[in-house]
């Protein structure tokens, strides 16, 4: 390559690194400034951020993420299995594409779509009422699980497809011809192969729900004690502007996500061994 082309590209690459330092890395790293006060280490902001109100916010966010990820994981794994065992390539391709697209759809449009469906006068609630069945309160804690399932379920489906791809259909046939039951095969062969991917995907779903802000904000106008909403309040809410508290809470959240990332990487390594890729 001519030197001009090469060095122009290197120049842009260096500019890119500078851009990432300024707008990605430094804003994250400099959050730890909250532990310095007048040149001295100070844990005052940590004490403020671990008040009972914020402890509850952390606990609520963890619970929401744990349960919502679990629901998505169970349904998504089963759906990935359904796609794996489906003989119809058209159904397979369409469902995979649909899931990949829906997995990224969140925020105000999703929240308002569910309000139309399951709000006070929601279409599904009217049906449930007409049938004499209990209705769903979309603004309640359980209501949020219904909304999050919209992206968690297809996300898990998409994430689990490659893992199922590592299982050959012939294995199932071979096991059955040797007298194993369908369940026996999935328990002894399928599950051990799938388990690392299930764990890794679960962690992604967990982080996905834990850091989510837009959907729950639009659904409840921010009226819920969750960690991302509390952080948002401290920088742009009506209560007031408290950047130190916001940064400390943000660090708390980043800590949970960093731990998730480490666990995810470990599970990927394990999955690579099990799936032979």
């Amino acid at each position: 390559m001519s030197l001009g082309l090469r060095w122009a590209s290197v120049g842009i690459a260096l500019l890119f690194v500078l851009f990432l330092l300024l707008f990605e890395v430094l804003p994250g790293l400099l959050l730890v400034r909250v532990f310095w006060n007048d040149g001295q280490l100070s844990l005052a902001s940590w004490a403020e951020a671990t008040r009972p109100l914020f402890q509850r916010a952390l606990r609520n966010s963890l619970e929401l993420a744990f349960i919502s990820a679990l629901q998505g994981a169970v349904l998504g794994t089963l759906t990935a299995w359904a796609l794996w065992s489906s003989a119809n390539p058209l159904v397979k391709r369409f469902t995979t594409g649909l899931s990949a697209v829906a997995a990224n759809f969140a925020g105000p449009p999703l929240a308002f779509a569910f309000i139309v469906l399951l709000g006070g006068n929601g279409f599904l609630n009217l049906i449930l009422k007409g049938l004499g069945l209990p209705t769903v309160d979309i603004y309640s804690k359980e209501g949020l699980y219904w909304v999050y399932l919209y992206f968690q379920w297809p996300l898990m489906t998409v994430l689990m497809l490659p893992a199922f791809g590592a299982i050959q259909r012939e294995w199932l046939e071979a096991a059955r011809s040797l007298g194993s039951s369908q369940w026996g095969f999935w328990w002894r062969v399928g599950l051990p192969v799938l388990l690392p991917s299930m764990l890794g995907s679960y962690i992604l779903l967990f982080a996905n729900a834990f850091g989510a802000y837009a959907t729950v904000y639009a659904l409840t106008q921010g009226q819920r004690n969750l960690l991302p909403l509390q952080i948002g309040f401290q920088v742009g809410g009506d209560i007031g502007y408290n950047p130190v508290l916001a940064s400390t809470l943000a660090l708390m959240m980043a800590l949970v996500l960093a731990l998730s990332l480490v666990l995810y990487r470990l599970s990927r390594r394990w999955a690579a061994r099990m799936e032979g890729v």
Binding site: F23, L26, P27, G28, L30, G211, Y213, A246
Partner: peptide, 14 residues
């Protein structure tokens, strides 16, 4: 992944 939108916003504002 570790610094999603909400956290990035806090860092950028400060």
């Amino acid at each position: 992944f570790v610094f999603p939108g909400v956290i990035l916003a806090v860092g950028l504002i400060s």
